[in-house]
Design a protein around this nucleic acid. Structure first.
Lengths: 342, 342
DNA sequence: ATTAATAATGGTAGCGCTAACATTTCGCTA
DNA sequence: TAGCGAAATGTTAGCGCTACCATTATTAAT
């Protein structure tokens, strides 16, 4: 009889483990592990026996234990500014398609365009030992920048091109702003107002404005900016149109920071019987589907959002697997989509 | 000298662990653990010392190890049919807002409306020992139904009301279909065509059709169904309008399965100069913002999507924490939003 | 001052898995 | 059929943390 020293109890979730599967199959635990992780190194007959045992005992794999033991979680931390913006959803779809195919699990969070929140999220996610991190944009607060730089797993900064910590997949926002400004000038527009929502937070809209202004000023024009403090939604765009018509009677075109604002303005114009582009021309950015279904169709710049996600994922996976990359920076470009609105 | 038996090497990620923090702070590892998990049971002076040590050694918490040891991951598995549909994004936003506040991390995946894929995802997620699972809808394939039923963590089935495995937060889809059908009948419409996209996959659209048909047949009318095999997007709605006008010349209204289709049709009508609702009335489902910005505004049924997410999260958390719930089923209801389109 | 209660902290033993190394078995050649 | 290299399988020792129980410090009560 064992003496009074009773064995300690441990909360038993009492799910079968590979040890039980191993006994059932008459093999060792590591062989079960191999069937799960690298089935081709196990002889087919053995594998079959193990697989039968897995079914028989109703084994459910414990990824937490595996990740801990192998020091590799197959988690990808993904941080975007907002989940309400379809643009980021498409990026996530692109990331997801590739990561899922390769057996990685995305950990998703949104910053609400707040860099301090971003930092907090990065810290939290690091606790899960992600295999890589995908963050939106190149601007981070000081602490966040330091953490990301010191991180030894791959980091992808997406959407925006420039000096990145590690991988970089995105487009040239100032150039997109220039592109649209040049187009509008080319169509003979003068007094073009740039309208954005919360430029301080959505600073990429600010980068596009910088490009826009550069072109306008080069042609000797002012580049008025209307920075709204509401969120960038339809309603905001509608109100912005009214304000521009009231405050800038000479304006012949509005360059909106995104298609949500532009579409809101366009639909509002329609309701109010304001002629677009005759009374005022309207241009957007992103190339959302809705823009091509309104009348007049929206003139905008189409960004390859899904592609950004897919490419970023591909490159991150390559980096994780130790494959060399031709280039750390990928310019996905953009396309001027000409509708009738401007 | 130790004999030839050399000590084995283990891959060293060489990140500081609580053991190093403990030495630095002159306490035991468990005290460091307590500072991280239940700071109020540690004396403030000790806590301060530990926190300083954490900063000094640059400790990053390893959640994987913690989850394994405590058999509690604080992961919530969330499975939705699609990430391209803004409806589910809003649900996710609702879930996220509540889960994040309570320190839970969402693991997200989409089924593409495929029940076999859903089953696969459930299996995969179970490997992460989630604290709970949130799945969309009440229909699952046999294996999935069994797995979910046998699962001992909380399961929330959302969007749809009915016989659920555990928690249930959603709305009554047949009743929503009836509601709109009654409204359309009340407006004097006859020959109302129900248009959906892939009813077999988006079976909740089918449930609404069932309600719709019930009301129409009760008033002695046929309830033609046009089931499109494209995805439910603007373009599909536009094409559907053409088909209805061609194939159902007597139709006076179209009851679309969702706002994407309805909006697509509405914008198409506008482009083509088809008068809505005079030539044909259009109704939708979901109450997306865009519907209230087009002219005529869309008559639709507004579903409280964000609220479904938030409530589901609240109830799941209550269940995880062992708090009793008044009711396992929550009907979030819906609202008829009357525009000028029908 | 002494005791009893409580608060704070610590020691030990895993959680379930896999890396590293060790051993056995197999397939093939001579 | 022995012998050899490769393939398959096994043994051991953690991964970094927390549950459990034990112990020590502190406070409250007499």
């Amino acid at each position: 009889m064992s003496s009074s020293k009773t064995k300690r109890q441990r909360r038993g979730v009492m799910q079968p483990t590979i040890a039980e599967v191993a006994i059932e199959a008459g093999v060792s635990a590591i062989t079960v592990s191999r069937v799960l992780n690298s089935p081709d190194v196990v002889r087919p007959a053995t594998r079959a026996r193990v697989e039968a045992a897995i079914d028989k005992v109703g084994y459910v794999r414990n990824m937490l234990a595996g990740s801990l033991a192998s020091a590799s979680s197959r988690f990808i931390a993904v941080i975007v500014p907002s989940l309400s913006n379809i643009v980021f959803i498409e990026v996530i779809n692109g990331l997801q398609s590739e990561f899922e195919r390769q057996g990685y699990q995305i950990l998703l969070a949104n910053t609400d365009y707040d860099l301090d929140r971003e930092c907090q999220l990065v810290r939290t996610f690091l606790g899960w030992s992600p295999s890589a991190m995908v963050v939106t944009g190149l601007r981070h607060n000081e602490a966040c920048q330091r953490i990301l730089s010191e991180c030894d797993s791959p980091i992808a900064e997406i959407m925006e091109l420039g000096d990145a910590i590690d991988l970089n997949v995105g487009l040239d926002h100032p150039e997109a702003g220039r592109c649209m400004a040049r187009y509008l000038l080319g169509k003979g527009h003068r007094n073009i107002v740039y309208v954005a929502a919360q430029v301080a937070r959505d600073y990429r809209a600010g980068l596009r404005y910088d490009g826009h202004r550069e072109v306008l000023e080069a042609s000797g024009q002012a580049a008025p900016l209307l920075d709204l403090d509401q969120l960038g939604q339809f309603e905001t765009g509608a109100r912005a149109l009214d304000r521009v018509l009231a405050d800038y009677p000479d304006a012949s075109a509005i360059h909106f920071a995104n298609d949500d604002l532009a579409t809101g303005a366009l639909l509002h114009a329609q309701r109010q019987g304001i002629c677009v582009p005759e009374t005022i021309a309207i241009a957007g950015f992103n190339g959302l589907p809705i823009g091509q279904h309104v009348t007049p169709r929206l003139t905008t710049i189409t960004s390859p959002r899904y592609r950004i996600g897919r490419l970023a994922a591909e490159q991150v996976i390559a980096r994780i697997e130790g494959r060399a990359l031709a280039n750390n920076r990928t310019d996905v470009g953009f396309e001027l989509t000409i509708g009738e609105s401007a």
